[in-house]
Write a protein that binds this DNA or RNA. Structure first.
Lengths: 342, 342
DNA sequence: TTGAAAGCGCTAACAC
DNA sequence: GTGTTAGCGCTTTCAA
């Protein structure tokens, strides 16, 4: 059995309060006493029982991060950034995978499993605007993503519409006019897919390019295989296009692969742009032009905001909407100038 | 403030023991009593305080997983599998990133931060055989990977030597004789790089093919950019080769990209094989032949083994070495038959 | 500067 | 069947 405060106190010949004082760096301790205590701690290999400390203090020093699936590169990179930032604040991170399933997301918000943590950073995928009430939970919560807006909690997300519009304009500026989309969700208005489609449509309209429904490739999941399958469908449909906007990098890379298999050169015949700026976007063939949506900033801001809510200095502070800046990262798959082809 | 057992007991007009009995599904409770209590629980929105329960029971229901970096696809996919398996056992998973840094790994093993968990699944990268003593910790521990063998704890890992040998033999069987390596570590004997290089050398020797030091590409990190850089160095060196063995998929994909940039076809001029069977290996261009090292089995087995140690039915059970089965996954980048080229 | 003692919320003997 | 009570290991008034 591990040593306790009492064991240390007994060995050092002091009370547990004194030991506690030493551990918590209470300033007014006689050096001789401190030394005695420290010797006893070392001798017993004592480490404080965090569970007991937590029970007393009401804090655990842990936060939870709920994402759909770490197998998705975007969320893996997001989680890595959140953990790194949390570590700077001496917090540990407990990760939950929801599978993007609405019921599991709702269940998670309710479940006592989170009692182990001081708060939650939550990236829903299955829940929608109708579930906004479920975000009223009795613990600190920060929501990420674009499934739910105007909720009762702090919300850190990216400028989806503006970024998608900029991505589309990047293609238009290089002379492309028939821009296919890979990753739309049927009938979705908010959510990444809905917002990015809106940005796409806005860019077309602003430039007087007609919106052609035949150019829109639908897929629910955003795995690479879905990008490939959707592109195959677009090709089979026989619709003409000279550019592709993948709603994330993974889709774009899957689509690019199918294009090349089908004998279309990238960016010669078809320019391709993605969204996310995953690590691998810079190493694909050709390297992928994409949107950096500010993932690191989002991770940092989410942790900082959650910490503020946990500290609870101003319980009545209204919920905030925090928006990351984005940036087009130009690489080979969609050069700015139309001259760079084949 | 959240409701406690006492609040519920007061409202229901019973003792806290009765409430506790209801919550813990103790069988012998009069239905009327149960109903009263359940009504009070619902009314107050009571949920048990897990911290208090943990303090009492000595269990937290959480395990820790320490990996170098979730930004590395292998570890992200491993973490996803561990979390999924832990969830089946009603455990939550706390993830630590060590950056593959020896000092941080040693610090983690000692630190009280793990006190929040019942045990640790630890995938070291910086520590080596000399640090075996650091694995003698006062909590349940399962070690992954190939940095440390014959430690005082259960060890779940893959058959690196045999798998690397099989990968090399796959290339030899298709008629390749000059097989370059990407990912070796200078002077390493164990560790993934050391073991895989050994498997490579064994395969060459078994087939009477000379081992040429000029074919060995060294790099410390295994990011995609390192695969690219190492391949560039091999090309600049002017050494002839007709196949490449990337010590992981990420390296192999980085190397494949540089080969194609340099005008070498894959697999026509150069066959490429990787190691890990990442999700993306099946979607690259060409798709990547690789080794499936049994990652899912490793995740499942690590959780199961850790749970057994936590349950502690047999404290004196000797440490076990558990080895996953591997499998060559043949795809386009290295077909079995030499005929499939260009 | 240090000690004594209460209590965080829960579980599990043990009593009734 | 249900109630009483003693801690789990720690922090924190309050006294000394």
């Amino acid at each position: 059995m591990a040593a306790t405060l009492h064991d240390v106190a007994r060995l050092a010949g002091v009370s547990i309060k004194t030991v506690s004082n030493v551990i918590n760096d209470y300033p007014h301790i006689r050096p001789a006493t401190r030394e005695k205590v420290e010797k006893a701690i070392a001798e017993l290999g004592y480490t404080p029982n965090l569970t007991a400390r937590n029970l007393r203090s009401g804090r655990t020093g842990a936060i939870a991060l709920a994402v759909p699936d770490l197998g998705l590169a975007y969320f893996a990179e997001l989680a890595a950034a959140v953990i790194a930032e949390a570590e700077r604040a001496h917090l540990v991170v407990l990760i939950e995978q929801t599978g993007g399933d609405r019921d599991r997301e709702l269940e998670l918000l309710r479940s006592g499993r989170l009692k182990l943590t001081d708060g939650l950073i939550f990236s829903p995928l299955g829940m929608g605007q109708d579930d906004v009430a479920a975000l009223s939970v009795p613990y600190p919560l920060v929501v990420l993503g674009e499934r739910i807006f105007d909720g009762p909690v702090d919300h850190v997300t990216m400028r989806n519409v503006e970024a998608a519009r900029a991505a589309t304009e990047h293609l238009l500026a290089s002379g492309r006019r028939r821009i296919a989309v890979v990753g739309a969700h049927e009938g979705e208005v908010i959510g990444s897919a809905g917002l990015r489609l809106r940005g796409y449509a806005e860019a077309l309209e602003a430039h007087g390019v007609p919106y052609d429904p035949d150019l829109i490739g639908y897929t629910t999941l955003w795995h690479r295989s879905n990008g490939a399958r959707t592109m195959r469908e677009l090709l089979e449909r026989g619709v003409e296009f000279d550019a592709v906007f993948g709603f994330n990098d993974t889709l774009a890379l899957g689509a690019a692969r199918v294009l090349q298999e089908a004998g279309r050169t990238v960016p010669g015949d078809v320019a391709v742009i993605g969204f996310d700026d995953l690590d691998e976007a810079q190493y694909s063939i050709p390297s992928l032009t994409t949107v950096d949506p500010g993932r690191d900033w989002i991770a940092r801001t989410a942790v900082t905001t959650l910490r503020e809510r946990i500290a609870n200095t101003d319980p009545d502070a209204p919920p905030r909407l925090l928006l990351a800046d984005f940036r087009i990262v130009e690489r080979e798959s969609a050069p700015a100038s139309p001259s760079a082809t084949r």
